[in-house]
Design a protein around this nucleic acid. Sequence first.
DNA 1: GCGTGATCATGG
DNA 2: CCATGATCACGC
Length: 220
Amino acid sequence: MKNKTTSPATEAELWERACGLREKTLGHLAAEMGIELPPHFKREKGWIGQLLERVLGASAGSLAKPDFPHLGIELKTLPLKSNGKPKESTYISMVPLMNTSLLTWTSSDVYHKLHRILWIPYFFDTAISPYHWHFSQPILWSPSVEEEAVLKQDWQDLMSLVQLGQLDQIHARLGEYLQIRPKAMNAAVRTKGIGQDGTKIQTSPLGFYLRTSFTEKIVL
DNA sequence: GCGTGATCATGG
DNA sequence: CCATGATCACGC
């Protein structure tokens, strides 16, 4: 992708740009940026997110950052079903598996990423070409006090399993708003973690995700 | 290998 | 139909 928008100076400017996306099609937006949809669209799972980074002027690439560092705002695309509800869970960040003893909720990646999010919803529909998919009304969101209390509890519960060497007991059914699922190229990928006896083991990389039922409350 | 962007594909 | 567990692409 070639064209890249300059970074928005203020939250208001970012919001203006985001609202300009409303009702636009994916194909139209790509054309404006001088790029084409990839031929194997299904395999390029992050393509829309990366397009929006460019369109809205987010910081480059895969650095560990909020997408808009000076604004403290994270950018997330959100696929919607035809009924307007989210189709998928939302990836937030990797689960730290080593050296987590001093980590707290407010010092965690999850806390910082969820502090403020610009959601760009779009209608996901495999019955038509992705070229014709429409963006919807953007949402600038921060968790309520009540929501953050639950998120914090989920994070603490899940992280305690990580710290206690109980990785084998972690699965996606745990957590009310937050869940942990694999996050890797495939199931053969290994990283270091804490095992049952407290020693270092090789294990699968994991990620924190927001449940679809939680993001549904955001878009409704 | 790790972290960014996520959705895919199948079993229940 | 749906969430879980698995997977895809890319930068460095």
